[in-house]
Amino acid sequence: MMKQLVCLFFFLLLILSCREVSPIRELKKGDSVSDFADTLFLGKVENLYAYKNKLYFIEQFRNQIVVLDDNLRLTGLVGIEGEGPTNLCGISGFVIHDDTLCAIDPVCGKILLFSMDGRVVGRRQFVGNEPLMPEFRFVASKGNLIEMSVSDKQGAFGRLDILSDSISFWGQRTLYPFDDLERIRNGRHLFKYKSHYICISDNEPVIEFYDAVRKRKGCLDYTSLDVVQRRLNYLRSHSSSSAANSYGIICEDAYVDENDDLLILLLSSNGDKGYEVNTLAVFDLQHDGARLREVCKLSGSVYSSFCYMDGSVYAFNVEQSVLEQFFL
């Protein structure tokens, strides 16, 4: 009962802070890039990530991690495509912690650790069917610990020790009427902000907060945002009994910046122009939660991933196959 009251309190607080967010501001565009001479053409970009004034992202057609400076100039590539023990053949995500890049390759069933100059400094081969959901953003710490969404019913997240191969579970799962639905709809982006955790579902308009010992402290429901209302109305109007085991994406990507205490969500919507993924909900992070700052819009129609660095949002425009900078 107490957990429900806490969640209700955060929900009412968010409603009050979200009443008027219009007109939505369209962000001013800065630099952009679509290719790097004859070296690289951007085709399918995922997992944009900012670290120490550089941008990192996955170019999935190459199975490599691309590194750019803050002027969008190519500075390097991490990983080599292939099926060898230290190669990448199907990278789905990565995170950087303490100058170590941790990459997940579910296709070849491995985790690879890279130094900042691209050397392989560690690896772990998956044994059997791991319950990990590496398509979501995840957390790495202490050089050997990874925490991410899992499909196992024992918890919402798994804490994997690369050295010992042990895994423990934590977090509250959402219950759904079908097993397949329960498995796929419990995926969440996971971030560590200072000493606690922030979790964002891709298909439910909810942000969850866990403390340092992984105890759930509260949640924010951002259903009241106009962009979310339009998306939910569309999904309801197009639902059918045959689609019982499917769901629609509400939050395409999310990002946390500790330097500026920001949480930003990339939201999908349905409107007069059809399906779009170009709306950003910007939250100021606080000691025990978050408060909506503004809702703004990118100039393109569909974006696959984004990150934030020093006042700028960097997002990949899918229709134009271009990486774009916007000033927040």
Rank of each mutant, 00 (worst) to 15 (best):
Phe191Glu: 04
Phe191Leu: 10
Phe191Tyr: 09
Lys192Gln: 13
Lys192Tyr: 03
Tyr193Val: 13
Lys194Asp: 15
Ser195Pro: 11
Ser195Gln: 13
His196Arg: 15
Tyr197Leu: 07
Tyr197Pro: 03
Ile198Glu: 00
Ile198Gln: 01
Cys199Thr: 10
Cys199Asn: 02
Cys199Glu: 08
Ile200Phe: 08
Ile200Ala: 08
Ser201Cys: 13
Asp202Ala: 11
Asp202Val: 12
Asp202His: 14
Asn203Ser: 10
Asn203Gly: 12
Glu204Trp: 10
Glu204Leu: 15
Pro205Met: 00
Pro205Cys: 00
Val206Met: 02
Val206Ala: 11
Val206Thr: 03
Val206Tyr: 02
Ile207Ala: 00
Ile207Gly: 04
Glu208Ala: 09
Phe209Cys: 05
Tyr210Ser: 02
Tyr210Met: 06
Asp211Lys: 01
Asp211Gly: 12
Asp211Arg: 06
Val213Phe: 02
Arg214Phe: 10
Lys217Ile: 06
Gly218Leu: 04
Cys219Val: 05
Cys219Pro: 00
Cys219Phe: 08
Leu220Phe: 02
Asp221Trp: 08
Asp221Gly: 05
Tyr222Asn: 03
Tyr222Ile: 04
Thr223His: 14
Thr223Leu: 03
Thr223Asn: 11
Ser224Trp: 13
Ser224Val: 15
Ser224Phe: 04
Leu225Gly: 10
Leu225Arg: 11
Val227Gly: 08
Val227Asp: 01
Gln229Val: 04
Arg231Val: 01
Arg231Ala: 05
Leu232Phe: 07
Leu232His: 11
Asn233Ser: 11
Asn233Gly: 10
Tyr234Phe: 11
Leu235Cys: 05
Arg236Thr: 02
Arg236Trp: 05
His238Val: 14
His238Thr: 12
Ser239Asp: 08
Ser239Gly: 15
Ser240Tyr: 08
Ser241Glu: 00
Ser241Thr: 12
Ser242Tyr: 08
Ser242Gly: 11
Ala243Asp: 07
Ala244Cys: 12
Ala244Met: 15
Ala244Arg: 01
Ala244Gln: 14
Ala244Tyr: 12
Ala244Glu: 14
Ser246Asn: 06
Ser246Pro: 09
Tyr247Glu: 13
Ile249Met: 10
Cys251Ala: 01
Glu252Trp: 03
Asp253Arg: 00
Ala254Glu: 06
Tyr255Lys: 07
Tyr255His: 15
Asp257Thr: 12
Glu258Trp: 07
Glu258Val: 12
Glu258Asp: 03
Glu258Pro: 08
Asn259Val: 14
Asp260Tyr: 08
Asp260Met: 10
Asp260Ala: 07
Asp261Trp: 03
Asp261His: 13
Leu262Gln: 14
Leu262Met: 13
Leu262Arg: 14
Leu262Thr: 15
Leu263Val: 11
Leu263Tyr: 12
Ile264Cys: 05
Leu265His: 12
Leu266Pro: 02
Leu266Ala: 08
Leu267Ser: 09
